[in-house]
């Protein structure tokens, strides 16, 4: 006897998809390309990975190349037969240096920031605050890129903010009061 689950409440397919439910994900799968489209893509991938070598322009070139190769082989055999072998030179082989991990922000300019040791506070204009303690940025400051931030509706206290300023890292500063 199998359990009757017809009385159980059905789970909403959209909620189930958002939760990553496998059945819901499979039910919402996009249509896949046809076998002919896959085959065409496979051929293009093959071509890009192994570009065809150009065919020789004329057949008599092939004969000339064969003759030249034969002559070169004969000359090499004669050379090794009459010339003493050179001294073997020992070359130091160093292990390959491991590749550094990829830095996703490598293409962006570095934003220089001063540390506490590099700043000497001589005078603080105004009143009501006193710089004290360690600087708040003792380590690398990770900046979000526009890919990671979605700005829906900037508040009016913010300065002029471009909604899609490109892919550069960004810093939003509050408007001075």
């Amino acid at each position: 006897m199998t359990p009757d689950d017809s009385n159980l409440p059905r789970r909403d397919p959209l909620d189930a998809y958002a939760e990553g439910d496998r059945d819901a994900v499979d039910a919402a799968r996009p249509d896949e390309p046809t076998e002919a489209e896959w085959d065409a893509m496979r051929r293009r991938i093959r071509d890009r990975l192994n570009p065809p070598t150009p065919a020789p322009a004329r057949r008599n070139w092939r004969a000339a190349v064969l003759v030249a190769a034969g002559a070169a082989t004969a000359a090499a055999v004669a050379w090794f037969a009459f010339v003493p072998a050179p001294r073997v030179e020992v070359v130091e082989v160093r292990p390959a240096v491991p590749e550094a991990p990829h830095d996703p922000l490598a293409d962006f300019a570095v934003l220089p920031m001063a540390t506490a040791e590099e700043v000497d506070v001589r005078r603080v204009p105004g009143a009501g605050w006193l710089p004290i303690g360690p600087d708040p940025l003792p380590n690398i400051l990770a900046l979000a890129t526009t890919d990671e931030v979605e700005l829906d509706d900037p508040d009016s206290v913010w300065p002029q903010v471009t909604l899609s300023p490109g892919d550069a890292p960004m810093i939003f500063a509050a408007k001075p009061r």
């Binding site: 397919p13 959209l14 039910a27 799968r29 996009p30 990671e148 931030v149």
Partner: peptide, 19 residues
């Protein structure tokens, strides 16, 4: 929701997520 609607809804919602 039929399958096509389901896919359309998911496509539209995913497009609105941050990258």
């Amino acid at each position: 929701l039929v399958r096509a609607d389901l896919r359309r809804a998911i496509d539209a919602a995913l497009a609105r997520l941050p990258v």
